[in-house]
């Protein structure tokens, strides 16, 4: 069982923004869904077998890309060719 307190904590971690009015509904739904997920407890084994996959990488060389203008076009706030973000500190 997860509690409203835990759901609120998860919402904080995910930066999802949650209203106190929504907490009860989300908690109720999460408990039903997580109870269904408990069926995974029946799965034997602790680690998925590796499937001989390999990473696909390219050489680290500069290639033509989008222009600065194109990249900034969808940003709401820009300044001197930079994207302006909320303050972090």
């Amino acid at each position: 069982m997860v509690t409203e307190h835990e759901v609120n904590h998860i919402a904080e971690l995910a930066d999802i923004g949650i209203n106190t009015g929504e907490l009860g509904t989300f908690t109720h739904q999460f408990n039903a869904i997580l109870e269904y997920f408990d069926i995974l407890d029946r799965v034997m084994g602790e680690q998925a077998v590796s499937r001989d996959l390999c990473n696909v990488l390219r050489e680290d060389v500069v290639e033509p890309s989008l222009s600065q203008e194109d990249v900034l076009r969808n940003a709401a706030h820009t300044e001197d060719g930079f994207i302006k973000a909320p303050r972090v500190m």
Binding site: G17, N74, A75, A76, P86, R87
Partner: peptide
């Protein structure tokens, strides 16, 4: 809300602005 989408309020702190946009 920084590179695309509805504008994040740049006067707010990161988490507050981020949560507001996503909610």
């Amino acid at each position: 809300g920084v590179r695309y989408g509805p504008a994040a309020d740049t006067n707010k702190s990161w988490h507050a602005a981020y949560q507001e946009v996503r909610r």
